[in-house]
């Protein structure tokens, strides 16, 4: 099968802010029709990386390519192909919902074709037609996010950046945004997504790039990333039992470090072999075994960012 073209490719991105190394040699790739999830705990460098990718910040080192061409040679043309939905609502409060889309179209050259028709189409697609004449601040959180995404699409970009698009939304609104993202992927857009919701990242992302302390610590499909970083199983146990006291030394002996403590429980990511050893070592211990998820990965990175 022919390999899909790399819509966006970043190689060796480096950024210092205020003298601090925030992004340290990040590589990532996003293809057309693919959702790339960019994950990591707070301070991992996600937003800075994203801001470099969509041209807010200039990288101190590294290359960003779009369709194989270095974007530094023509940033303007590159930005013509981008849609950006920032984490905060940045719509224009002086205009109505419809006018927000129209005015956003005026910020692109070549001018988007048939703007009034495109605006109607987006209002319809994002269920905003009823609110077209309202000011954005009159909208609920979910509809504000829809407006932000619709605005990012008004000029028919090929690559969309979604920075935590569902933060603060109720479950129904989140699902609605997921449906929209799925539809955009199906339409062939490349999408770079950051989120703090691990279920969202698992559901939406075709590939994940995981950052910690400004570096890529894992890259691949959600399943392979979890396997690489956590193993195949997570053992959950209460640490206050007498027999659990020996678990800490056992982990140390097996080079597994300290257990992850979550609400008083210990979460131990283990491979199949390690699980078998664990079961033999602690036959009387009561514990639960479940598959790993991105929450485990997130906690591992947040609690022990250098673990990888």
């Amino acid at each position: 099968m022919a390999r899909m073209p790399a819509l966006l490719e970043a190689v060796g991105l480096v950024k210092r802010l205020g003298g601090r190394l925030v992004v340290d040699g990040v590589d990532l790739v996003c293809h057309a029709g693919q959702v790339l999830g960019l994950l990591g705990p707070n301070g991992a460098g996600k937003t800075t990386t994203l801001r470099m990718l969509y041209g807010f910040l200039t990288a101190d080192a590294g290359v960003i390519r779009f369709d194989g061409a270095d974007v530094a040679r023509d940033v303007g043309s590159f930005k013509r192909q981008l849609g950006v939905c920032t984490q905060e609502d940045t719509f224009d409060g002086d205009f109505t919902v419809r006018e927000n889309l129209t005015i956003a179209a005026s910020y692109f050259r070549p001018r988007p074709e048939h703007v009034p028709h495109r605006v109607d189409e987006l209002l319809e697609r994002f269920s905003l037609t009823t609110y077209a004449g309202d000011k954005p601040e009159a909208l609920s959180g979910g509809f504000r996010r829809r407006l932000m995404i619709a605005r990012a699409l008004v000029h028919r970009p090929r690559l969309l950046f979604l920075d935590e698009p569902t933060t603060g939304l109720d479950p129904q609104a989140r699902v609605a945004v997921w449906d929209l993202v799925n539809g955009l992927r199906a339409a062939g857009l490349g999408i770079v997504l950051t989120t703090h919701y691990m279920d969202e990242a698992e559901r939406l992302s075709d590939v994940l790039t995981v950052l910690a302390q400004g570096k890529v610590v894992a890259h691949g499909t959600p399943k392979s990333v979890l396997g690489d970083m956590l193993g195949e199983h997570v053992v959950v146990l209460e640490p206050d039992s007498v027999s659990a006291a020996a678990v800490g030394p056992w982990l140390e002996t097996h080079g597994l470090g300290q257990p992850l403590a979550v609400l008083g429980a210990w979460h131990l990511p283990l491979s199949a072999e390690q699980l078998a050893d664990f079961a033999r070592a602690f036959p009387a211990l009561r514990y639960e075994v479940r598959p790993p998820n991105l929450d485990d990965l997130f906690l591992k990175l947040a609690l022990a960012p250098c673990a990888s």
Binding site: F56, T86, T90, D92, G93, F108, R151
Partner: peptide
Amino acid sequence: QRTWEGQLTTQID
């Protein structure tokens, strides 16, 4: 109003 931030996500520098 964060108008600038919205503009900066486009081709406006």
